[in-house]
Write a protein that binds this DNA or RNA. Structure first.
Lengths: 200, 200
DNA sequence: GCTCAATGTAGGCAGCGCCAACAATGCTGT
DNA sequence: ACAGCATTGTTGGCGCTGCCTACATTGAGC
């Protein structure tokens, strides 16, 4: 019995993961606008309705991509943190990790910070965001304890730092800033953030 | 001759403006994802292909919306600037103007900073971005001249300030920050930005 | 007043997301 | 062992979309 090119068994085995992987690649290569469930199904080699078994919605798939993005980013942030180092060094390392992720996954970042999410996913996404912010909040709290930064509502200080970094990321993603140049000047940027724009 | 409810003349008169106006409303009410050229045509009362006479593309219409957004934003920034005032006051006023615009036009802002633009529009959009940044660059240059802020590459200092504000805007747009709360704490935010996080 | 460019209309095409009906598969209890 | 059933994949179809082409109407310039 010659069977030509071993047809895939009726059941894929791990279609959900395969779809996410393929979607992640398309997202990176051609942007979120080019993502289509039907093309995704073709790429993976299943019928056009198969993805519907794993993602009730296109939005649900996008949310799953975003969640995966948060998990990777949070791992990167955790790996970059050096709690035993002085504040500025820690902050710079975290900034580098965050911006590195942003530069390499601009479309994904856009998805992660998009305002539209399925209600079912938003709880998990909110938790992931909290986890990311938590890394910075911990840093701020530690630094306040050591007297390395000013007192005051730690949440506000975290916001100042996070907004600065996220702004850089967003400007890079929007091509308003050059990625390499920004990364090269990141130490100075963080220094200015910590020491202020006013002369001392 | 009774003509019932005076049918619109064959030529609309200013279809382009009408389309942009209707699109802006839909964008604000239901987001960019809900924008459809055909629905737009129905709303304005023309045939489904009429918009194509004024916008070669859907992207071209989005770019036109973004450009209009920049013009309104730049007017708001220009109106808020008070060149005769001290640096911190000027910066706070600009920050308030920018964030006010961001809070009231989150979807539009997303469009303005989107990475995908038609090549024909991108020159005008780049000019509009430069105009926006120019307001801040001028502020930084003035302040350096007065010795109110540190010396150094003014472009870098502008980036620090712009990234911070844009980050706040993006976080608000992504619902990661509460709009009113952020606006209420804006003075403090700018103060921290200027004076740094480190104790003096 | 004729001509022509500009602008609006009608119809059609392929692709999309989503849905419902059906088919193949593998798990589970007896 | 195998019947029953939930899971997962397939097929077909609906209405929508953006875009294209051919045609109709209009206003402006000669």
């Amino acid at each position: 019995m010659t069977r030509m090119s071993a047809p895939r068994p009726y059941h894929h085995g791990d279609l959900r993961a395969a779809l996410l992987k393929s979607a992640e690649r398309t997202l990176r290569d051609r942007g979120v606008g080019a993502l289509s469930l039907r093309e995704l199904a073709r790429d993976v080699g299943v019928s056009h309705a198969a993805p519907g078994r794993h993602f009730k919605d296109k939005q649900t798939l996008l949310d799953a991509l975003a969640l995966d993005g948060y998990e990777r980013m949070n791992r990167a942030l955790a790996a970059a943190d050096r709690p035993d180092r002085p504040f500025e060094e820690r902050m710079t390392a975290l900034a580098r990790a965050y911006l590195g992720f942003a530069v390499e996954n601009p479309e994904l970042l856009e998805l992660m910070f998009a305002r539209k999410h399925d209600p079912d996913s938003s709880a998990q996404l909110a938790a992931a965001v909290d986890h990311s912010l938590g890394t910075f909040t911990r840093l701020v709290a530690d630094a306040q304890e050591q007297g390395e930064i000013v007192q005051g509502d730690p949440e506000r200080l975290t916001t100042v730092a996070a907004a600065s970094l996220h702004g850089l990321a967003a400007l890079i993603a929007g091509c308003a800033l050059d990625a390499e140049e920004t990364l090269a000047g990141l130490d100075t940027h963080v220094h200015l953030l910590l020491h202020g724009l006013r002369p001392r």
